[in-house]
């Protein structure tokens, strides 16, 4: 958007007013990525095959995960089997904080800060990956994705649940499609190939790596897009817009006419004598 660049040239001209507005406009959601890990890998994928790492993961698993997923990840009444979940699933759930799960077993896991350190996540991922055959942590190559194609694919396949703006949306029976505001590129990619929770799988059979990269790139772009129109109002469509129009717009205007139209207290004049009947009789005017 060229308007941003033009706006920067403007700052010295209208300094005072624009400082606050520039902050408003320039406020970019999320993107507090560390420089060396912009895609959100967190773990060292080369270390996942290391038996020592797997062993440490097994120990962490025995303490934190067995109660639901069962010994060796075979599952239990409280949690599904994860023997074939693969590194991608473990990585997705652990880095997005969805595991360990805080609520009831049938409750949807929500994104929260990860419970484990990076090293612990690495150990656990290595252990889960060693349990069976599952998808590996994908290689994300944003530069191989095509932004426009990604947009088309996103609107065609993802927007129905996550909304065209990526703000997320409601599903039935208490489930929801989460907002994609802070999802990292690796997490987005992983979600598509593993289909966490209610989410369908956007499998390698149906989508090429290039297409998946395109979608990730589009979501990444959405996150950093900014809102040229001002406050985003959550990017969830006409509902918040309606509330702003009713409360701020209409409420504000009602307050304004109240102040304009209210009589000045205690200083009203006694009614003067009626205007001449000849004036009043035409009925024109108000």
């Amino acid at each position: 958007m060229g308007s941003r660049a033009r706006h920067l040239r403007l700052v010295p001209v209208v300094a005072a007013a624009s400082v606050a507005l520039a902050a408003l406009l320039g406020a970019r959601a999320g993107a507090v990525e560390e420089e060396h890990d912009p895609l959100g890998y967190v773990v060292d994928r080369a270390a996942l095959d290391d038996p020592a790492t797997v062993a440490e993961g097994a120990e962490l698993f025995r303490i934190g995960c067995v109660s639901c997923h069962g010994p060796g990840g075979v599952g239990s009444p409280r949690g599904p089997a994860i023997t074939d979940a693969g590194a991608a699933s473990a990585h997705f759930y652990l880095t997005s904080g969805r595991m360990p799960h805080a609520g009831a077993p049938d409750e949807q896991a929500r994104r929260k800060p990860p419970a484990y350190t990076h090293e612990e996540i690495e150990d656990l991922v290595a252990y889960v990956a060693s349990l069976g055959e599952g998808p590996e942590i994908p290689d994300v190559h944003l530069e191989e994705g095509d932004l426009q194609e990604g947009g088309d694919l996103f609107r065609g396949n993802c927007a129905a649940c996550h909304s065209a703006t990526g703000a997320g949306g409601a599903l039935s029976y208490g489930q929801h499609a989460p907002s994609l505001d802070v999802a990292t590129p690796v997490q987005i990619y992983e979600a598509m190939i593993i289909g966490p929770g209610q989410m369908p799988v956007f499998s390698p059979e149906a989508f090429s790596e290039e297409e998946l990269n395109s979608i990730v790139r589009y979501v990444e772009t959405l996150q950093g897009l900014g809102d040229p129109g001002g406050f985003s109002l959550g990017r969830i469509g006409p509902i918040p817009e309606g509330f702003v129009a009713l409360v701020i717009g209409t409420g504000g205007m009602m307050l304004t006419v109240f102040l304009i139209g209210r009589r000045r207290h205690g200083e009203a004049e006694p009614p003067s004598e009626p205007v001449r009947p000849a004036d009043a009789s035409t009925g024109a005017g108000r």
Binding site: D227, S232, R235
Partner: peptide
């Protein structure tokens, strides 16, 4: 409102 609050961002909807 028109300057400060974004309404109907059609570019996002496609």
């Amino acid at each position: 409102l028109g300057g400060l609050a974004q309404i109907n961002p059609i570019w996002l909807y496609g």
